[in-house]
């Protein structure tokens, strides 16, 4: 078991190195430091100005290491800074990136944890319900609604719900959030701020998730062991919960565990639209301001979380599925 975990971790580490290279290619080789400087300073910036900007933000080194001079390249600096979690300061306003990210985490989690949990429970329950009534009109309707939900852009969900529930009906504030709310424990206010974004978030991913869970359940329901369970005299409820759910957990787990990193990253659009100052908002600001230094770190952190989640999935497989061999 330990060897298995170690091997998974080692491969994860290798993937991190690959991700870093990819980030470097995107942010340094595709968009060269000169372009970055020009975007920050404006198109008319002079050569000297650009050099000064590059020196200030540490872009004034050669891109790739050469045989003659292996140290001191941007590539090396990039690996060192991200691997040691020394993210430095933002190119845009010199604020320390590490602190910004730590501050944004709380707000993101406040939005995404309720969203994740309620979405998961609701999706599983509905999928079980629909699978229970498979091949009846309830099932057909359920699938139809799921596809309907999948065909609507999240932008429409957000804009529409803000318009209807916040502007016309005035049930909730259109947007806004106060990080102090979490510290103060003012749950009532927190709930009012979060109700709409959480609902929209659940709604937007609901169709796809439920349909996926349903497909998994229906696939399991048709398997031979389910017939055996029925032939033993097990009731439908027992068949569903004890036999089908347990087997279906294996494919479902992949989808769910891999979604966990997004708890930290928040939802880009939801945070931006509803004015929640989490990591998603930070990312959107970075895009708007062409702040590559922040964007880079965000990509890195998300990839890191994603890789960890993947390792967690592999390990949890061994717990759920006795057939997985640790080779």
């Amino acid at each position: 078991m330990l060897a298995y975990v170690l091997r998974k971790l080692a491969y994860g580490g290798l993937t991190v190195l690959g991700v870093l290279l990819l980030i470097f290619v995107i942010f340094f080789a595709m968009a060269r430091p000169d372009d970055v400087a020009r975007r920050a300073l404006g198109e008319k910036a002079q050569g000297a100005q650009i050099e000064k900007w590059k020196a200030k933000h540490g872009y004034d080194k050669p891109l790739w290491p050469t045989l003659a001079k292996p140290g001191g390249s941007l590539l090396q600096a990039h690996y060192v800074s991200l691997l040691s979690f020394e993210f430095g300061n933002s190119d845009l306003n010199d604020s320390p990136i590490g602190t910004t990210i730590r501050d944004g985490m709380g707000a993101s989690l406040a939005l995404t944890i309720p969203m994740f949990l309620s979405g998961l429970v609701l999706g599983l329950v509905l999928a079980l319900f629909v699978a229970f009534f498979r091949e009846t009109y309830i099932d057909t309707m359920g699938v139809f609604l799921c596809v309907l939900g999948m065909s609507v852009s999240i932008l429409i969900y957000i804009i529409g719900s803000q318009f209807v529930f916040a502007k016309m009906l005035r049930w909730f504030p259109i947007s806004g959030f106060d990080t102090d709310v979490i510290a103060d424990g003012n749950w009532n206010l927190l709930l009012r701020f979060l109700a709409l974004p959480v609902t929209v978030g659940v709604l937007s991913s609901f169709g796809g998730d439920t349909r996926f869970y349903r497909t998994v359940f229906v696939e399991e329901v048709n398997r031979d062991y389910v017939r055996t369970a029925r032939a033993k005299g097990a009731g439908e409820m027992r068949v569903m919960l004890r036999h089908v759910l347990r087997n279906a957990m294996i494919p479902i787990l992949t989808r769910v565990v891999v979604a966990i990193p997004f708890l930290f990253t928040g939802s880009l659009l939801l945070e931006a639209f509803f004015g929640i100052p989490g990591l998603g908002s930070i990312t959107v600001d970075a895009i708007a301001g062409n702040d590559f230094s922040v964007l880079r770190v965000m990509v890195y952190i998300f990839a890191l979380l994603f890789i960890l989640a993947q390792i967690a999935t592999d390990i949890s497989y061994t717990l759920v599925d006795p057939r997985v061999r640790l080779e």
Binding site: R223, D224, Y225, R227, T228, A229, R230, A231, K232, G233, A234, G235, H243, R246, N247, I250, V320, D321, P322, R323
Partner: peptide
Amino acid sequence: PDMRKVRGHEMSMIFQEPMTSLNPVV
């Protein structure tokens, strides 16, 4: 419910495919 009491109790069945007829995770 009465039918459930018959299945596996008064009348039980052995299937063609032993490979897939047992629940793999129990």
